[in-house]
């Protein structure tokens, strides 16, 4: 953030804390892009990042009447955004753990509590076929795909991980085609 913008934000936030409503727009226009880009950098999911940034912005305005003019407004707002982003990341992790089944595992969300025998048989066959195709891959390809399904990138750089997932997916498609002939 430019020093001039930071000074302008500090001055506007101090005025807003005192009740000067004309400071609302300058604060909004400086803070929103800052918090939005900060959240996008921390949270991979675009919708969650936007949601976190919006909640952070609303919290800033909720606490604005008690803002201490001795503080740095940008640092204060970013700290609020960081908390929102951490909460967003926790939600994403919990969602992935709840909803992503691995091949060989039953998908709880998809299970019909009262399946008919034919649906059960089809599901069993599909899962077996998927497990077989996955089993035909090299171990590192299988692990890469499992990590991708779990949302766990581990220590790899994003670009490297994306490339590995892409190659593993192509090999999985090839394995599936060779066994089942589906285009």
């Amino acid at each position: 953030m430019e020093a001039a913008d930071r000074r302008a934000l500090n001055a506007a936030m101090a005025r807003l804390a005192e009740g000067d409503r004309s400071a609302f727009s300058p604060v909004f226009e400086i803070l929103w892009p800052l918090l939005h880009s900060f959240a996008r950098g921390l949270v991979r999911d675009a919708a969650e990042a936007e949601d976190a940034a919006q909640h952070a912005l609303l919290k800033v305005f909720e606490h604005a009447p008690r803002f201490d003019p001795e503080r740095d407004a940008a640092a204060w707002a970013v700290a609020i955004a960081a908390n929102e982003c951490r909460a967003a990341q926790r939600r994403l992790r919990r969602r992935r753990e709840r909803t992503v089944p691995l091949p060989g595992e039953a998908d709880p969300a998809a299970l019909d509590p009262h399946p008919d025998p034919e649906s059960e048989a089809i599901e069993r066959d599909l899962l077996a076929a998927a497990a077989e195709a996955l089993g035909a891959l090299r171990p590192e390809d299988a692990e890469t795909l499992k990590a991708a399904w779990r949302g766990d990138r581990s220590a790899l750089a994003p670009a490297t991980f994306r490339k590995r997932v892409q190659r593993a997916t192509e090999r999985l498609r090839a394995a599936w085609r060779s066994r089942h002939g589906t285009p």
């Binding site: 807003l16 009740g19 609302f24 909004f28 929103w32 919006q54 912005l57 609303l58 305005f61 909720e62 606490h63 604005a64 009447p65």
Partner: peptide, 14 residues
């Protein structure tokens, strides 16, 4: 809408 909601939040907090 975000701007309007932020304004309402601020006034409510005041």
């Amino acid at each position: 809408l975000l701007r309007r909601r932020a304004r309402r939040t601020y006034e409510g907090a005041r």
